[in-house]
Each structure stands twice: as C-alpha cells, then as structure tokens.
Design a protein around this nucleic acid. Structure first.
Lengths: 111, 111
DNA sequence: TGTATATTCAACCAATTGGTTGACGATCGA
DNA sequence: TCGATCGTCAACCAATTGGTTGAATATACA
C-alpha cells in the first residue's frame, strides 16, 4: 500500500507524464497519438506510459495493432487521501484552481 | 510552477520522507530527533530533509546548534489542486481514510 | 504475399537518487 | 578551554531514470 504510493507519486513527479494524464482526461488515446505532441521519441513516450501503467494511473488495452490508453483515476484517490491526512490546507482557492486547470489542459506545453 | 510540482511529487515518492512529514505533523523536531527512529545514518536523513525543504514541504530554522524542522503544508496544496483537476475520485471513503491515517501516524514504520 | 503501421525491446548513455563513511565547522556546557 | 553534541559536506557506490537509436514483433491493408 505504501509502495503503491511510492509509484503513484513518482509517476506524478514528471511533467511529461502529468501532461499525458491531462490529455487522457479528455479522451482515450492510442500510444502514437499520445506521443505526437512531444518532442521525444515514441519509445520514450512508451516508457512513460509503462510507468503510468505500473502506478495504476492509466490502463492500456490492445485492440488490433493499436494500444489504447485510458485514465484510471482510482490510484490518484489513494494519493489524495494521503494528502488529506495533512488536512491543513484550508479551503482551496477556487480561482487559482481554475487558472491552474486551464493551463494544464492546454496540453503538453504545460511545462 | 510546474517545476514546483515536480519537486513536491518527487519528495512525496519516498516512504522515509512521507514518514518524516507524518512525524512533523505532530510537532516541530530537531534533525537528530527526526533521524532517531530510522535505521539509516544521520547524513541520509539530513539529505531527505534537504529534499523536503527544496520542495517547500518543510522549513528548517537553526537555533543554537539545533536545526528545527517544521511542516509547511502550503506546497501540498498545489499538488492537491492538481489532483482535483482529475476530480473524478468520487466521495472519498472515510473509513479507508481513517484506517490510512492511523497507519501513517504510527510513525516511521509506515513502509 | 509483401509492405506499411503500431508498439515494444535491447543496448547504450549521462544524470540523479539513496545510501555509506569520515572529516569538518559550529555550538553548548563543564 | 576542552570535550561532547548537532548537523552538513565530500567522496564514493550501486541502482534507477529519462533519453537515444536500431532491430524486432504484431497487425492491417492492398
């Protein structure tokens, strides 16, 4: 259970992977399409997807020769619960939240 | 701002550091006291504290020859906000939450 | 069948991480 | 002032990470 937190937080600690999650928030995607906006090799993106899968943050299902990537937000819940154990962050500032969200959802430029 | 998320999540991706945060949740502590329950050198714990400080999750203030470590939950808020952008984790299961919290607050055995 | 597409694998590289030990600088207390 | 304590620094080590390229595998299509 603790090890799961390790892999989830480690997976989230990379801007490429967070961008991928934001992309998958909008729709399931094939590996090639996930990789397209990034300036790195397909193999590199494939590795990032493996890390996200190991962490349980996404799942990958192969249909034909295409591997579809799907967001699996359950793993995030554990991490979120952990954070709430530090419940000291008062009411979340919703303005900041919306600005943040806009930025992230702009896609892979999020770094 | 994205880089801040990198360091926060990376800092959280280690069970020793999460245990340290849980300990500091109860009280401010000196470096030596933070290190005491861990089976690793003081220097190793000191490095962990540096990583937590860089991430903004704790602050360290030297008084005399003792360096006091203090939880700074603000950095966690940004990470928490990011997670809420995936707002799909429905109502948090409070039972699971309480069990979780107990385990974590038991101290450095949390791994 | 043969070729193009989708994805991973394998080997490699540089940089980082998590740990060690030993020496060091600073501060306290007798 | 002297010795003990607090904490970091420096050098080192093994393992991991994030990237590359080129070959390999699997599927689709003509």
């Amino acid at each position: 259970m603790d090890a799961q937190l390790d892999t989830v937080f480690a997976a989230l600690a990379d801007p490429t992977r967070r961008s991928i999650l934001a992309m998958l928030l909008e729709d399931d995607m094939a590996v090639t399409d996930v990789a397209e906006p990034f300036e790195m090799s397909l193999a590199a993106v494939s590795k990032h997807l493996t890390i996200l899968t190991r962490a349980g943050l996404i799942s990958q299902e192969k249909r034909g020769r295409v591997k579809w990537c799907k967001l699996e937000p359950d793993a995030l819940r554990d991490a979120s619960i952990w954070m709430q154990s530090f419940g000291q962050f008062e009411a979340v500032n919703l303005d900041a939240f919306e600005r943040f969200l806009e930025g992230e959802l702009d896609g892979p430029t999020a770094d």
